[in-house]
Each structure stands twice: as C-alpha cells, then as structure tokens.
Amino acid sequence: MEDALSPTPERREKILAISAELFAAKGIAATTVRDIGEAAGVFSGSLYHHFKSKNAIVTEILGDLMNDVHRRFARVAEHTRTPRETLQGLIRETLVTIDQHPHATAIYQNDRQYLRDNGLLEPVDSASRGVRDYWMTAIRAGIADGSLRDDIPAEIFYRSVRDSLWATMHWPIRRGYSTPEFADLLAKLFFEGFAARRD
C-alpha cells in the first residue's frame, strides 16, 4: 500500500480505471472509497489528494466518456461527405466508444437512479444532447437530399439507432464480430431493413 501524497497523472488514471471497473461491477452506491483504495493500492484517505469525493470520480469517468464521443463524432462530421457516410461513421464510432469505455458505459446505463439522485445525471444528459445534434443534422440532411426516406420522423430513426447501438453491449453475440464488421451489419440493417430484396 502506497501513500499518494504526491499525486501523479499515472496514479490518477489508475484510480479512475479501477474505480470505473468497481462501479460497473458493484454499482456506485455499493462501492466505498476504501474499496477503491484497496484495489488501487493506496490508502483510502490519500484518494482525497486526487478527488474531492467518490462522486467526483464518477463525474470524471462519465465526463471522459462524453468528451471522447464528442471528439469522435466531430471527426466523423468533418471527414465525411454525405449524410449516409456521416451516419455510418457515427454508428461505427459509437461502437468503438463502447469497446473502449465499457465500464463507463455500464455505469451510465445501469446506475442512472444513483446519478439522478446525486445530481450527476444532468451534466451527462446535457452532453448527450450535444451528441444528438450530430445525428439529427445528418439525418435531416439525408431527408433533404432524398437519400433517406421522409415518411419516418427523424427523431424516431435517431432514437431507434441510438438505443440499439448502446444496447449491443449486452448482446452475447457481440463478441463474435469485429467492431468494423458489426458496424457494417447494423448500418446495413438500419439503412436497408431486413426484407429480402426482390429485383
């Protein structure tokens, strides 16, 4: 056990990673500062040199998740030429984000009541509304240029795609596909449906 009186970025990142894993596995409420300290190999009191509270750790974990989503989506929007390319990129990058932040994703999905009760949900939901703008801009552009159908409200398409993508972290079959393969399959389903083609 080491005393973290001299905080370092590496130790801080280690604490964040271990905390995220514990929160995802046990729930935030059931995870104590002592649990985190023991798993991170530091005295629990020393954690306060890095973070003001357990909830401050949660805030940073979820903030990192949302910042990464924004960075990825901004890059997609900047480097794609058509609405369909943009939407395919958003699908792919959502799956990559889930792959790279599995614990933060689980916290956001499974511990919403704790987040709400502790005033931690609104900042994440606010960031999510910014993420929504990327989707809606591309969907509306696709409707406007005729590449997407106009008889289904954009909001329904957006919510169907978004919720399906984030739910895939619970699908047992997910591990049977690489992220690019899985992204391609879902994009094909969303854009072309499941009905057999009849030429």
Rank of each mutant, 00 (worst) to 15 (best):
E2T: 13
E10A: 15
E13C: 04
E13T: 11
I15H: 01
L16C: 04
I18H: 02
A20G: 08
L22P: 08
F23G: 05
A24L: 03
A25Y: 06
K26Q: 08
I28S: 03
A30Q: 15
T32C: 04
G37I: 10
G45D: 09
G45P: 03
Y48M: 12
H49W: 02
H50F: 15
H50D: 06
N55K: 10
T59S: 15
E60T: 12
D64K: 13
D68R: 13
V69Y: 15
R72N: 05
A74S: 14
A74I: 07
R75N: 06
V76I: 14
H79F: 11
P83T: 03
R84H: 07
R92E: 11
E93A: 07
I98T: 08
N110I: 00
D111P: 06
D117Q: 13
G119I: 11
G119P: 07
E122S: 10
D125C: 06
S128W: 13
R129S: 12
G130L: 15
R132H: 12
R132P: 00
R132L: 07
R132C: 02
Y134D: 01
Y134C: 05
Y134I: 06
Y134P: 04
M136N: 01
T137V: 11
T137W: 01
I139A: 03
A141N: 14
G142W: 04
D145M: 04
S147N: 11
L148M: 14
I152G: 03
I152Y: 10
F157L: 14
Y158Q: 08
S160E: 05
D163L: 12
L165G: 10
A167Q: 14
A167C: 10
M169C: 09
P172N: 05
P172V: 08
I173F: 04
G176W: 04
Y177R: 12
S178V: 03
E181R: 12
A183W: 01
L185Y: 06
L185T: 09
L186K: 05
K188T: 15
E192S: 13
E192I: 04
A196T: 12
R198N: 08
